[in-house]
Design a protein around this nucleic acid. Structure first.
Lengths: 234, 234
DNA sequence: TTGTCAATTGTCAGTCGCTGTCACTAGCCT
DNA sequence: AGGCTAGTGACAGCGACTGACAATTGACAA
């Protein structure tokens, strides 16, 4: 990409690229700002574009659709989560790995997106998502797709075949289901803090973990249930 | 509003009502026909309206949006399922009740909608739903809302408080998750028959049932896991 | 039968999300 | 310097959906 020419601005390569990043960041910041204050449906793409002093067409050049802007941060977090899951020690049971990855992601949430948007905007955006029918639907579909991906990850680390053994998918589906329930309850509750979300998750997860097998390597598929335990608290 | 009108609901009340029913049925039939042959996104509301010889505006007077038409039959099935669940004997464990209600609903699927659309249109519509991003998202949101409702039903029949005890929601979420996974796999598979869907469900459900408690009345919330068994096969 | 009321519907205009096209400007490269 | 091309704005257009208003038509009473 970069030729032999001295970069006038120093850090990033190309002035063009910088401008692009700035435009994208501005669009995203403005969009989330509007979404979290006026509401998603109440915000038009035209408004966002106008606020950033860009044509509507340009907005759609950066975000395939309005939704994409709403989930941009969420997307980062998911990527973060997947990396955390990949980094989990192989000895850890699938459920503990999932659990620890989520909690770990939330514990480092700040560092992960400080440059993009303030944490409280992210949290408020979560609430917007849960309360807008359109966004909720999109969120669930995204989760669904994510679950398929994660199921394959889990199957890999356990050395199983996703198509042959139902347990990875079943486990991830259960896990995802619980995560969604907690998200919903968090929004409905009065405490909209990160701590509240975190402890709600821990609490609900604790009710599912003991009900599903901890170590698949020592049990046959048909009797995959044991005494639980082994979830290392944060 | 309405004074002493004749039979408001019943079967044959007023010529006006008949016409309305006929229009609605025609719109629905045509819509599903188009959706299942041309695809959802590829079908225009204008097309549907034109085929029924009605203005586009009228379509939207019968169906709040395009989606509503796509899920009209699904809505009936859900109603059917809920009734089945309500009718389940109180002694039955929550999971068995859910399982038997689903299977029961599918076994009587024919009688439930013969008058509306042929069964194969319903099945093809399921495939359309799973394969259209828009419809999949809507489907998942509907399922999510349904789960909340069912969780309350389950809590009631077990004499629990949904807000206090996480188990109803967790169980229903898990159950729903498995149902969705099977739906997805069914669409991806080659056998698009009702039998295939049914047996896939049975198979996957059997992997979850033994992993979750069967009888909550005999176990404390914190140790809700036992030896499984007790799922009465169909 | 006829007139009145109210429900249904069609027509029209307009909003909003989103896409294709095309010309134009401004970084980038040689 | 001059050509190339990425990025953008302006414009037109499609499809889902809504509000408003007028025309139609079934329901009911005089």
């Amino acid at each position: 990409m970069t030729g032999g020419r001295p970069a006038p601005t120093g850090s990033a390569a190309g002035l063009r690229e910088q401008k692009k990043q700035r435009t994208r960041a501005a669009l995203l910041r403005t969009a989330l700002e509007f979404f979290t204050t006026k509401g998603y449906e109440e915000t038009t793409v035209d408004e966002i574009a106008e606020a950033v002093e860009v044509s509507q067409r340009t907005f759609f050049r950066y975000f395939a659709n309005k939704e994409k802007a709403a989930f941009a941060v969420q997307e980062m977090m998911e990527h973060h989560f997947v990396e955390a899951l990949r980094a989990r020690p192989a000895e850890e049971g699938p459920f503990d790995a999932l659990r620890n990855s989520v909690l770990g992601t939330w514990d480092t949430i700040g560092e992960a997106l400080t440059e993009v948007v303030p944490v409280d905007v992210y949290l408020r955006m979560l609430q917007v998502i849960e309360s807008s029918p359109t966004l909720l639907a999109a969120h669930l579909r995204r989760s669904f797709e994510m679950e398929e991906y994660i199921a394959r990850l889990i199957a890999d680390r356990e050395g199983l075949d996703v198509e042959a053994d139902p347990r990875p998918r079943v486990a991830v589906a259960s896990f995802g289901g619980v995560m969604r329930v907690t998200g919903q309850l968090w929004v409905q509750g009065k405490d909209a803090s990160l701590d509240a979300l975190r402890s709600l998750t821990v609490s609900y997860l604790d009710h599912l973990t003991p009900a599903l097998a901890t170590n698949w390597r020592e049990t046959a598929p048909s009797e995959a249930h044991r005494s639980a335990g082994g979830a290392n608290r944060a």
